[in-house]
Design a protein around this nucleic acid. Sequence first.
DNA 1: TATCGAGCGTACCGTACGGTACGGTACTGG
DNA 2: CCAGTACCGTACCGTACGGTACGCTCGATA
Lengths: 221, 221
Amino acid sequence: MRSSLAERQETVEAGAEAPATPSVRQQAVLDAVLALMVEDGDQLTMDAVARRASCSKETLYKWFGDRDGLLTATVRWQASRVHAGGAAVQALDGATLREHLQDFAVSWLTVITSRTSVALNRIAVAHAGSRKSNLGGIVLANGRFAIGERVKPVLEAGRDAGLLAFADSEAAFRTFFGLVGRDIQIRLLLGEALDLGEDEIRRDADRAVEQFLALYGRAKA
Amino acid sequence: MRSSLAERQETVEAGAEAPATPSVRQQAVLDAVLALMVEDGDQLTMDAVARRASCSKETLYKWFGDRDGLLTATVRWQASRVHAGGAAVQALDGATLREHLQDFAVSWLTVITSRTSVALNRIAVAHAGSRKSNLGGIVLANGRFAIGERVKPVLEAGRDAGLLAFADSEAAFRTFFGLVGRDIQIRLLLGEALDLGEDEIRRDADRAVEQFLALYGRAKA
DNA sequence: TATCGAGCGTACCGTACGGTACGGTACTGG
DNA sequence: CCAGTACCGTACCGTACGGTACGCTCGATA
């Protein structure tokens, strides 16, 4: 089935990057890549992708350049779905600060425990070993660093409101990050089953926030 | 150069595991594997290993069965070098508890930031994607879980001495783990440069221990 | 010295996979 | 109705790599 509306079909010129915003059809291809990654990590061949997405390999190469381009586009595509929320922070009281932090913790735990994230991170980690096309950098930028940039303003607002005390918001965030994630991500990446339910995630997030406030809270936050 | 002393040369029978304690020559081969892993992650071919170790591929297959066997033996070999220390814990006062925790934190940070550990974990993570021969499990058992088993008794001794308060030593350890490692391991695995010096590690360990004691310490530890 | 075997070097095989070429088809615009 | 084009399906190519086979050397033992 061709796309009936005349969509902007972008091809990748020699040396250029994959399209910033994939067409609907291209998104379907990228979803196929994600599906394959999740269900069998090392079955991720160009043939398999083409078969799964019902497209020709030639098209894959035309759209994404090469295998790395396809993987990069996939990582970007997945990243684009995760970014959400992030409303501006205003007048903070203790309860809303706690609530914000809890939200961050829950959504972060939900992301890193998802099968998609695990599969994606595995690919990126494996890729980081060999130089070329840093998937790792992209994953970091859209994962760890993206959430850092979203959390830090909240922390700073908390400090401005006299609820938190710290000198370096980056350091404070990293502590928060450690308290939330602990050993979860590495265990998942290394293949442990370990699936947290929604309630377990909420409890974990709760504990992490309490601990963080115990360390950085001023007066009663 | 052959090994001049008549060493027990073990071969791997069909379906059996690699030798538990590799001969000196075999250790040299495994070191070659480690060296290759560190200097170029995806150049880890059987040919490359044989060339690097000055041995024949046939010997590799005789000794280790197949590629997975070689990798498994390498992971085990590296693990066997890391295990050290772990003296029995007796009468704890606040200062020695703090010291013990600091030692653990420093040695853990030193391990996970080492190029060898990063390379090894990359391989194991990549392998965890495809089923078969869980390198991931071995790495977990000798890394995260091994240190857990060494830290928990210390924590419990601290509790017995009235220095710490917690209900679940596993949970307490995981918090400690998170405070120490934070985002370091994932950032390294994903390819960020980020090399900590010895002093930086010590500072990090310091901070982590202080934070842990702030959360779990009873009276002044 | 003759025999044996561990192990090195190299050549070889099969296959899987990245990447390319090509014919056929359906939709689009003139 | 015809040209153009986007794309599917499939066949194909080259190569890299896991795994095997074989000849040769060297040290050990009798």
